[in-house]
Structures are given as C-alpha cells and as structure tokens.
C-alpha cells in the first residue's frame, strides 16, 4: 500500500493526469463515460451518448413517440399493444412497460406536467397512465370505433377522435364524457390548444373543422384545401398556427389566429410521401418556435443550402441491457 501511495510522484501517472486538460475537456469526458473513442467525430450539439441512437424493443410497427416535457424520457406506442418508456440520455434504457391495451396503440401524449401519459388505441378506448409506476390511472370508454387520435390540453382535459364519427372531450377528474361532437365522417386527427378553448379536427373528407369550446354551438371555421384524409395535426407552441399532414402528400400551415382575414392556408410544404399503407403519419413543430412567426431552424446561411444529409454508418459499438437491445451508432462526417 505504501508503495502505491508513493507512485503519483513517478512520471507516468502525472502525464496521464495532464492529458484531459490539454485535449478538449468535454469530448474526453464524454468518451470516458461511454467507453468509446469519439474524438474524431463531428462536433456534438447535444448530450446524447452518440449522435444517433437506435432503440429497439417493440415487436410491431411503432406508431407514435413523444419526448417528455422535461426532455429526459420518451414514450412510444406500438402495434404490439404496448407503450414503452425510454431514457433519452445515457444508454437509452427502456425503464417501464405499460400493459393494458387490447389492441394497437395509435397515439401517445404526455400531460403538460410530465406526470402522466395519455394513449389512444384501436381497442376503442383511451387510457391514462402514471409514468412513475406504469399503473393505469383510468380509462376513457365510450367510443364505438377505434380511437385514431388523442390530444390533451393542460394536465386534465383530453380530446379523442374516433372512427365512429365523433370527437369526445374528457376530464380525468370526472367519470363521464364531457362533450360529444358529431362529424359527418370518421375523424382521423384532433388537436386542442393549450388554453383548452380551441379544438381542431381532421376528417376523412380532408376538411379541418375548428370549434370554439366556450360556445355550445357547432363549427366556428372550416379549413378547406387538403384533397385527401388528414393524417395528423399539431398546433404551434404559441397556438397561432396549425400544421396538418394529409394523404395528398402535402403539409399545410394554417393561420388560426382568431381575427385573421383572407386565406387561412399560409404555407404548403412538399416532400413527405404517403403510401398504399394509408398509415396516419403525424407531424410536429420544433419546440423553439414559441413566439410570433415560428423560426424553428431558420438561419440565414442555411437558406442557400437545400439539404443537409446526415449519413449514418454501420454500428460502431453495441451494448445490451436487461430488457432490450440498444445499439448506438456513431456518425462520422
């Protein structure tokens, strides 16, 4: 023991201690924690273990996935009737499994406080889960057809859209359905504003209907433009714009401010494709487009650069945990 205590005075150990100081500090510490050498890779922009992480574990197509409001977890819903909770940082471990749906899970959402998860399923129900215990808090039963989409507002209100041509509004503190809104066709997507006053529904006929939930009467606005089924919708973080994805292979951005005039469809985005599978493909806003006109990734020098392809390479390191395989892919440029 005494010999070892004397060792730091020797040259070898002192040099080793110097190394992390001379190299870029963050990179070497990150590579130490991960056990892999990543010095030659591109500059990192996030705290992910590797630039690209592959999460496997579902036994069917994964139909929906969402980050938690604090960004530390991700929940995914799949055709295999399960919801899985993942850690985003570190080894991306699968920490919890939510069992209870009788059929495919079609959409998942976090509550605003990050304590609960809502899920819509093809078993005609929506469920509310506790993320700490994976226990089912309650079910929302009443739809006669499969529930295509759900959207929470705040921590308690949930809107569900179903193939039975209705949208239902629920409060998780009240047992029964609060409101039923009937549509002429099956409803494929729904979105509610943060304040809980605006409701948007996307239908099989390609029309988006807006409702003012403070009033008892019907549609306040119909947004026409899509030529095919609306497969997904999201309100922008500031609530002023609605993004909708349709099977006519376009995405449209709608101005949904209360007193706007003229054409509500402000932008059309092309590129994403739909196929014969007719899956309900969702769309999302980046979280930074919070105020005014949304500039999520806008930057002047990028306007001249049309595409920034990232090229994932074959897996460089593999690791296993108790539940599922997680493969980390290193991205070299």
């Amino acid at each position: 023991m005494e010999k070892r205590a004397a060792a730091p005075e020797g040259g070898a150990l002192v040099e080793a201690a110097k190394k992390p100081r001379t190299a870029e500090g963050t990179l070497t510490t990150a590579s130490k924690a991960g056990g892999a050498i990543q010095v030659a890779g591109p500059q990192r922009t996030s705290e992910l273990l590797a630039p690209i992480m592959l999460l496997t574990g579902h036994e069917g197509p994964v139909l929906s996935s969402k980050f938690s409001p604090d960004g530390r977890h991700m929940v995914s819903g799949s055709h295999d009737k399960l919801l899985l909770l993942w850690e985003v940082f570190g080894e991306c471990k699968n920490t919890l499994t939510f069992r209870g749906h009788q059929n495919a899970v079609l959409e998942v959402h976090w509550s605003a406080d990050g304590e609960k998860v809502f899920s819509a399923s093809a078993d005609k129900t929506a469920l509310l889960w506790d993320v700490h215990s994976a226990a089912r808090i309650r079910g929302f039963k009443g739809h006669m057809g499969l529930v295509n989409s759900c959207c929470p507002s705040g921590s308690h209100v949930l809107a569900t859209a179903s193939d039975d041509c209705t949208v239902r509004l629920w409060d998780d503190r009240v047992r029964t359905c609060q409101r039923v809104i009937r549509h002429p066709y099956p409803v494929t997507s729904v979105s509610v504003g943060e304040a809980g006053t605006q409701l948007f529904t996307g239908c099989l006929d390609g029309h988006i209907r807006a409702y003012d939930l403070r009033r008892p009467e019907g549609v306040s606005m119909v947004l026409q433009g899509h030529q095919d089924i609306v497969s997904g919708m999201r309100l922008s973080p500031d609530g002023n714009f609605l993004l909708s994805n349709s099977m006519d292979n376009t995405l449209r951005c709608w101005d949904v401010k209360p007193y706007a005039s003229g054409d509500r469809c402000v932008k059309v985005f092309l590129g994403a494709q739909h196929s014969y599978e007719r899956g309900l493909i969702k769309c999302n806003w980046s979280k930074s487009g919070a105020q005014g006109t949304p500039p999520p990734l806008a930057r002047r020098d990028r306007a001249t650069r049309p595409l920034l392809p990232l090229q994932p390479q074959p897996p460089a390191r593999a690791s296993a945990n108790t539940h599922h395989r997680v493969r980390a892919l290193l991205c070299w440029q």
């Binding site: 630039p51 690209i52 592959l54 994964v62 980050f67 991700m74 995914s76 985003v88 899956g279």
Partner: peptide
C-alpha cells in the same frame, strides 16, 4: 410514423414501421 423534437436540445426522435425508434442529433438552432 411520427417524428418529435426534443424540448430543450437539438435532438429528433423518430419511430417507424420497422419496429425501431431513432434518436438523432441535428445542428443547434439559432
């Protein structure tokens, strides 16, 4: 089927019919 942005960092998460989920890092926003 769905792609989501991370709330605080430049990360996107995507899930697909091939049973897998990818988390990918993109360039930092403005």
């Amino acid at each position: 089927n769905e792609v989501d942005f991370h709330p605080t960092q430049p990360i996107i998460g995507s899930c697909a019919n091939d049973k897998s989920i990818y988390l990918g890092e993109i360039r930092a926003t403005v």
